[in-house]
Amino acid sequence: MEVGIVSYGAYIPRFRITPIEIGRVWGQDGKAMAKGLYINSKSVPSPDEDVVTIAIAAARSMMRRVDIDPADIGALYVGSESHPYAVKPSGTVVAEAIEASPLISVADLEFACKAGTAGMQAVMGQVGSGMIRYGVAIGADTSQGAPGDALEYSASAGGAAFLIGSENIIARINSTLSYTTDTPDFWRREGQPYPSHGGRFTGEPAYFKHVGEAAKMMMERMGTSPADYNHVIFHQPNGKFPQRMAKMLGFTDEQLSRGLLPPMIGNTYSGAVPLGLASVLDTASPGDRILMVAYGSGAGSDAFDITVTDTIRHFNLAAAPTVASMLENTREIDYATYAKYRGKILMKG
């Protein structure tokens, strides 16, 4: 059975802060930071936004673009590392908000930055086996870097939702595979507000090894080479890592550019690869082939080989905001406002 994307929706909060502004506060060279990370600004959620509201905004956009009965959705998974509750699912709120409950399997997933794509795989299995007609996989985060930490220049917010099914597919998922090892490059212990990381250890043995291996194994499995793809989307903790990865594997900047969002919005963690895919699909043409490789610290990579179908011609993209429109409608804030919005100021109890 063919399984693929029937619809999708994206959401990026409106506020932005620049590395220059962050550097100004911490006595660091923000300009150099921006250049080194290839991040010119990052998205910041409003105080009334969290993973649940971002997931809902994305899921509602996804639903607006197609005419399907929400009761036909049999599973919904929200992948995030910043779920607002430690215990109590984000997904139940999302399911209720799109009126897909109560006959639905819901769970929250966590695998650092690849929980969203892990959800896609879980849903694909259920659709492919005939267990459910449609399933929803969402990747969303409102990640925090500790004040002054290098992560603060990149950790941002956003998410995208994908409706997976076997009818009216706008993008067929030809294959998916995962490459997983126990590699502690980045983590957050229970109860800790900010994550910790292994510094430069997050590069070669972690990101590059897993993304590179998963990409190579996928191309090997599909009998493809970089030239066969119109677009490539790699996990994007910053703008530089995916550029380097692309170069190492033999992809061009042109193949990478459509799905590369960190220069404008920073690292949306579980939202990163899903948003990159949404951005690519927003302007995709029938026949376009996409290689997508997510990465989650800890560590693992999910690779997807995708082909855009003719059905995308009839897809009602205009029914919801495109990624490009959300990159335009922005408002820049200063660090003080950012600190207030992100709960970094100690308030009176």
């Binding site: 409003s46 105080p47 009334d48 936004e49 969290d50 509201t53 809902i56 905004a57 509602r60 908000a97």
Partner: peptide, 11 residues
């Protein structure tokens, strides 16, 4: 008179 639509947020 400005056109608006409902969104879901933390209230």
């Amino acid at each position: 008179g400005m056109r608006v639509e409902a969104v879901l947020r933390k209230i």
